[in-house]
């Protein structure tokens, strides 16, 4: 326990110093990492803790993103109502999709979450007059916090994202360690036994699904603030697959793992795409390699190594 606190403190210190010591470009990569880490952690609550694998998690990410963009472009730049609307849209979307998806399990659940996310993608992609279609909606300005700081300052924006990331992490950690979180794990491990113990298994799955959607919405909103732009690709299967890879690469059911996964994927993608022309082949190979060689994720590998050393 003390060692993990120490590691967390070191990482936090690095994150605080980061924007002052690296170039603007690398600072941008870390902003992306932190935003996508919230996204990946939200999926981990659903996949790792509740045992519901989703191929359509980008639905809530993108829906909140479009909500934020449309509000800023047409209605208001005040951050607080935008936040409320994004959380609301993500929660509503997850509540609706969850009703349909939770009728099934296993491979069906994967396909249905994929298909439902494609419903939104289809709308965003084709409904040009409203969503901008393939080009998306450009020129989204950063919101006004109604505080004496401006998010147009990139360092301020970095800390705004960092603080949101820390709050989200803390809330999710509290959640998974609470009795509610323990019940989610129970549902994942043995739904039948949980039912026999008197738990409403469906309700726990449903709540886990919605909570995951809400935090995905937080990430989607931040992502639009950062990019100044939203498009159908934010809702796409590529995005859903990417976040799934982050969770698996880091290690499911750990919350810390997905943070690392996000960091690894963002920086790897950037590095590979700037070095190699045929970078999708390399990215594809990474998916395949992770599945074959690190199915338990980096956290899983570390655990098995430390267990081996412990024995020696």
């Amino acid at each position: 326990m003390r060692r993990s606190t120490l590691i967390a403190a070191v990482i936090l210190a690095v994150l605080v110093v980061w924007p002052f010591v690296v170039p603007a470009y690398t600072r941008g990569l870390m902003i992306q990492t932190l935003i996508l880490a919230i996204f990946a952690m939200s999926l981990d609550v659903q996949l790792g803790y509740t045992g519901l694998p989703s191929l359509g998690h980008a639905a809530y990410f993108g829906a909140a993103g479009f909500t934020a963009a449309l509000l800023i472009l047409h209605v208001t730049t005040n951050f607080w109502p935008i936040l409320a609307a994004c959380l609301g849209v993500a929660a509503l979307g997850a509540a609706l999709f969850g009703l349909l998806a939770l009728q099934t399990t296993g491979a069906y659940f994967l396909m249905i979450t994929l298909a439902l996310a494609q419903v939104l993608w289809g709308l965003a992609f084709k409904w040009r007059s409203f969503t901008g279609g393939e080009d998306g909606l450009p020129g989204v300005s950063r919101p006004d916090l109604k505080l004496p700081i401006s998010l147009w300052n990139d360092t301020t924006f970095y800390f705004f994202v960092l603080i949101t990331f820390l709050i989200s992490t803390a809330l999710l950690l509290l959640l998974v360690r609470s009795p509610f979180g323990q019940a989610l794990k129970g549902v994942r491990e043995n739904a039948l036994r949980m039912r026999a113990l008197g738990y409403n298994v469906w309700l726990f799955k449903y709540l886990g699904f919605i909570i995951a959607g809400v935090f995905a919405g937080v990430a989607g909103m931040l992502f639009v603030f950062y990019n100044g732009h939203v498009s159908a690709s934010d809702l796409s299967i590529t995005m859903s697959g990417r976040v799934l890879l982050m969770v698996i690469l880091g290690g499911t059911g750990t919350l810390v793992g997905p943070i690392f996964g996000s960091f690894a994927i963002v920086f790897l993608e950037n590095e590979i795409s700037s070095q190699i022309e045929r970078w999708p082949i390399v990215m594809g190979a990474i998916y395949i390699a992770v599945v074959l060689f690190a199915p338990q994720g980096v956290i899983g590998l570390l655990k098995s190594w430390s267990a081996r050393w412990g024995r020696a």
Binding site: L244, P280, I281, M283, Y287, I288, V291, L292, P295
Partner: peptide, 26 residues
């Protein structure tokens, strides 16, 4: 190698999309 494991299978075939479509593009 990942028989009967839904999620790894899906991720594996997802990886092959990147590889195969990029080879086609190439």
């Amino acid at each position: 190698r990942v028989q009967n494991q839904e999620l790894p299978q899906v991720l594996l075939t997802f990886g092959f999309i990147f590889v195969l479509e990029d080879i086609a593009l190439w």
